[in-house]
């Protein structure tokens, strides 16, 4: 399992792996928002937590098809399926690799981009925390979506259509933590719920993703 993780990380960092693409996208979204809504600082402060969350979510979505597609095309997945590793383990490692290469950079970049959006001083910590808790769920759910659409030629758009409704609860609670944190309100309840969704998704969804992959590899 560690070997698989190391391999996935190496492939992602290598040129053409798409590492950093998500970050660039996140930056672009954050830069475009003030152009869309106007440069008024008070307004930007108000919407900053939500914009950061949506930007991170879209950047995450953009990179989902890379989780499994390359391994599917060159037959690595078929080999992995015959390995002694259970399929549930494989999809969990894949999701973890996606989180380390996409989710974690987004989490670390969010406070920096928060400066651009004039985020309230109290908000930096909570944006960081909520994304750190929430992005693993995005990766795991995304892996499920990627597994569903893996055999399809034009799966990209379908992947977004399938995954976005599944992202709704995570987004709501995550953005709520960030917003309340920025406004100096109490954050425990949404944070606990966000954590619940995250851990629940990590514990249960790999079974669904593995079942889907087995069907697709049949």
């Amino acid at each position: 399992m560690m070997a698989l993780l190391a391999r996935d990380l190496k492939l992602a960092v290598r040129a053409g792996g798409g590492f950093g693409l998500g970050l660039a996208f996140f930056l672009i979204v954050t830069v475009l928002v003030p152009f869309g809504v106007g440069p008024e600082t008070a307004l930007l402060t108000r919407i900053a937590p939500g914009v950061l969350w949506i930007g991170a979510l879209l950047a995450c979505l953009l990179s989902l098809d890379r989780i499994l597609a390359l391994d599917w095309e060159d037959g690595t997945l078929d080999l992995l399926a015959t390995a002694p590793l259970p399929m549930e383990g494989i999809v969990s490692v894949k999701a973890l690799a996606h989180w380390i290469t996409t989710g974690l950079p987004l989490v670390l970049a969010a406070p920096v981009l928060g400066v651009l959006l004039n985020l309230a001083p109290g908000g930096y910590l909570w944006v960081l925390v909520s994304l750190a808790v929430g992005t693993p769920a995005l990766s795991v759910i995304g892996t499920f979506g990627a597994a569903l659409t893996i055999g399809l030629k034009r799966g990209g758009l379908l992947l977004s259509l399938l995954v976005l409704p599944l992202y709704v609860p995570t987004l709501i609670f995550g953005a709520e933590v960030a917003r309340r944190g920025a406004e100096g309100l109490e954050v425990a309840t949404p944070l606990l719920l966000l954590g619940g969704i995250s851990f629940g998704a990590m514990a249960l969804l790999p079974f669904a993703s593995a079942a889907v992959l087995r069907i697709n590899l049949r």
């Binding site: 409704p165 609860p169 709501i172 709520e176 949404p190 969804l205």
Partner: peptide, 16 residues
């Protein structure tokens, strides 16, 4: 999976 997330969304939206 969608059913589980639909129920989750329902509560999340209520909370929101």
């Amino acid at each position: 999976v969608g059913s589980v997330f639909a129920v989750l969304s329902r509560y999340a939206v209520n909370f929101w």
